[in-house]
Structure formats: C-alpha cells, structure tokens
C-alpha cells in the first residue's frame, strides 16, 4: 500500500519559525540570526554594537551555546537585555527555542533582536528561526577558503562580516578571494570588513543595522 504524504520534513521547526516571523512583523522587530564557527568574534561584535547603539535603538540578544551563561552575561554587562539558551549538546538553535526565549523578553519596545547562534558553520544554516535577516561572520584566522568549503552558510546570508581584519598582516588571508567566492554564491550579499577589536569598519555595520530596521 502506497501513501502519498507530500509533507515538509522539519515541518515542526518551520511552524515555529513561521509564528516567530509573524510575531516580529506584528511587533515591528528586525531579527537577525548570526551564524559562524566558534570564536569568530560574534559576542565581541555584539558587545561593541551594544555600546555604540544602545542609546539610539532598543536591542535585545538571544544567546545560543551548548553550555554556560557566559555570553549572555557579557551582553548584560553592556546594559542590554539578554536571554541565554543552553542547547545541552545540540549543535544548532531551533525555532521553538526562540519562541520560548522571546517570552522571557519585554518585546514591546524592542527594535532589534539579535540571535547569536551556536558556534558552528554547518548545522545552524539548516534551521530557519523566523529571522528577518541572516548574518554570517568569518574571521580572518579561519582561512580564506571557507566560502567554497561551507557554501550554504554564505549562500543563505544577507550580510557577511569579515572580522579580525587587524590580524591580516600576520596571516595569509586574501580578502578579495573571500569576497569573490561569497559573491559567486550570493551576488546580493552585503559584505563588511571589520575588526571588533580596533573598531575598524564597524560603523558601516552599525549603519546597515540601523537602516535595515527602518
């Protein structure tokens, strides 16, 4: 006996993603899902973004890590509200976890919600969280061949932050190669070269974020 199913696999995640998307729309919140390998500088970028923008717009952060509350604590020190999700071993955030985290935030006055996904350049790409935009962070120390090796993360992003450009002088990292490879996959990708440490290039990212919200 043959049964035609024609059902989306991962439908459960998509249902939650869709309801998050509706929620953001209704509340007029811009939500950005940040994806990268561990240690590329996501939390540092967010700390600096918080300091620069907290008096201009209302931002909240949802932090995803396998264990610990470290990153949410780092964000709270900047004065922003933050919710930590501990995935207890899972390699990505799911839309349902975001739905839950949103309940722990006062979302009435929020302009932007940033989700720092679990450090992993592979799995988080497969899980729609209902975000408005997706950012991928690649740090120079990871090497300039990563767009070609992990195409999906770059193909699905709206913005690419090439971080730690202060280190380029110590590395064989070809920024034009990264940009060329990324644009091949995704010609509309917006690319910023930044250093969260020295603040170089960060203004462009801040402006993008503020404009995206509008």
């Amino acid at each position: 006996m043959k049964i035609k199913v024609n059902k989306k696999i991962l439908e459960r995640n998509e249902d939650f993603a869709e309801s998050n998307r509706k929620f953001f729309k209704k509340k007029n919140i811009f939500c950005i899902n940040m994806i990268s390998s561990p240690g590329s500088g996501k939390t540092t970028i967010l700390e600096k973004t918080a300091k620069a923008l907290k008096n201009k717009i209302n931002i909240a952060v949802i932090e995803g890590d396998l264990y610990t509350e470290f990153d949410a604590d780092r964000i709270r020190k900047t004065g922003l509200p933050a919710v930590q999700i501990e995935t207890k071993g899972a390699c990505h955030l799911s839309a349902q976890q975001i739905t839950k985290a949103l309940h722990q935030l006062d979302t009435d006055k929020l302009d932007i919600v940033v989700i720092e996904n679990v450090g992993n350049l592979v799995c988080p790409s497969d899980f729609d969280l209902g975000e408005t935009a997706r950012a991928v962070v690649l740090s120079t120390a990871e090497g300039d061949d990563k767009c070609a090796k992990y195409p999906k993360a770059f193909a699905q992003a709206d913005v690419l932050l090439i971080n730690k450009i202060d280190l380029v002088k110590h590395l064989d990292f070809n920024i034009s190669r990264v940009k060329r490879d990324a644009k091949k996959l995704n010609k509309d990708l917006k690319i910023f070269e930044i250093s969260a440490k020295t603040a170089k290039g960060m203004q462009g990212w801040f402006n993008w974020l503020i404009n995206a919200k509008r």
Partner: peptide, 26 residues
C-alpha cells in the same frame, strides 16, 4: 556556482525545492 555556457557568476536563482517526504509504502 557559475553559468554552464559563459562561466559568469551573475545569475538569478529560482526557488529551491524544500525537503519533502513524498510517499511511504507499506
């Protein structure tokens, strides 16, 4: 990711197919 004829990387993409469970045979 490039054109199969001229090799350029400037192209527009259609919609990608979703992950679908099509049928089950018992």
């Amino acid at each position: 990711p490039k054109c199969s004829k001229c090799g350029k990387s400037d192209f527009s993409l259609g919609d990608d197919a979703p992950l679908l469970l099509e049928e089950i045979e018992f």
